[in-house]
């Protein structure tokens, strides 16, 4: 027996009421693709489920002013197929398209993926590169948290699904001279955990030959998507040359913490971070019409 109660609320307010009434005994389920495994393995125990799948107000991808806003119940398939994301924040569309299989992408949601706190969740890597904020509603009202602060330990989220709900992700729409890229290396072309995934957001000067700003997110390297801050700092203001890429490669391997896993050994992951970091920058810059000078 997994749980005794099952609620299907239709609004966020109803969710909050259920959460309050159940006093920590009931937890939110979004797509359920991760939670079902955890419950079956006995890693999560709960008396009741609040299935938020029917809350229409949490399913959207839209541009508002300078921002792109994504409802937490948006599925991976919807992200992958979104024309807006493909055009303006490709890193997220590509990342969502790499998750599991079509079946998983149709059920799994971006909010669920983040609350589940897998450090290598593809969408988490993308959202980290995009410097996204999560909007969370709970008994004390609403708050915003940068994605990087949602992870408190291995598989542990800042968001407590027995008390609060992520409603939305927000990030600044990449503008002029800004671009993104997503890279994934896995042992199989579908249904495989990544050996490595890496998301990049970057901004060049108008001449497209100097990197003005950059954000790099890598997984699975830590309990959370790893922001390669030192590499970012090293890259800022540098000319887009092979030499710069080499330096970035040498810098990033000092700040990642890969571990041996069935996907690959730490040493290999280190080598691959170098390869895919360079590829991501080349692709993002190429997307702007720039190129890396020799």
């Amino acid at each position: 027996m997994y749980w005794e109660n099952y609620y299907l609320p239709e609004t966020v307010d109803e969710v909050l009421k259920h959460l309050k009434d159940s006093n920590g005994n009931t937890r939110i389920m979004a797509g359920g693709t991760d939670l079902m495994i955890l419950v079956r393995k006995g890693m999560v125990k709960t008396q009741g489920i609040i299935d938020i799948g029917n809350i229409k107000e949490l399913k959207y991808i839209r541009e508002e002013g300078k921002y792109i806003k994504i409802g937490a119940l948006t599925t991976h398939s919807q992200l992958a197929e979104s024309a807006l994301l493909k055009k303006k924040a490709r890193v997220l569309a590509l990342a969502a398209g790499c998750v599991g299989s079509p079946q998983i992408r149709n059920a799994g949601t971006i909010g669920g993926n983040i609350v589940n706190a897998h450090s290598a969740a593809d969408t988490a890597i993308a959202l980290t590169a995009l410097n996204a904020q999560a909007r969370i509603k709970g008994p004390e009202g609403e708050k915003e948290k940068p994605l990087s602060e949602l992870y408190t330990g291995v598989g542990k989220s800042f968001v407590d699904p027995t008390k609060e709900i992520i409603t939305e992700f927000v990030f600044e729409t990449p503008g002029e001279n800004e671009s993104t890229a997503f890279m994934r290396h896995a042992k199989r072309k579908a249904l495989a955990l990544p050996i490595l995934n890496l998301g990049v957001w970057l901004k060049t000067n108008s001449g497209k030959n100097i990197l003005e700003d950059v954000r790099i997110a890598v997984g699975p390297m830590d309990y959370k998507p790893l922001r390669a801050v030192e590499t970012e700092n090293m890259l800022k203001g540098q000319p887009l040359t092979e030499k710069t890429l080499k330096s970035a490669q040498e810098t990033i391997i000092k700040e990642i913490k890969p571990r041996d896993s069935f996907q690959g050994r730490a040493a290999y992951k280190t080598d691959m971070v170098k390869v895919f970091l360079a590829r991501a920058i080349v692709e993002a810059v190429g997307d702007l019409g720039g190129r890396i000078d020799g």
Binding site: Y6, M29, G32, T33, M36, I37, I49, D51, S101, P102, Q103, I104, N106, A107
Partner: peptide
């Protein structure tokens, strides 16, 4: 298409 084994 969804995986019915993963779905309440």
């Amino acid at each position: 298409p969804v995986a019915s084994c993963m779905m309440p």
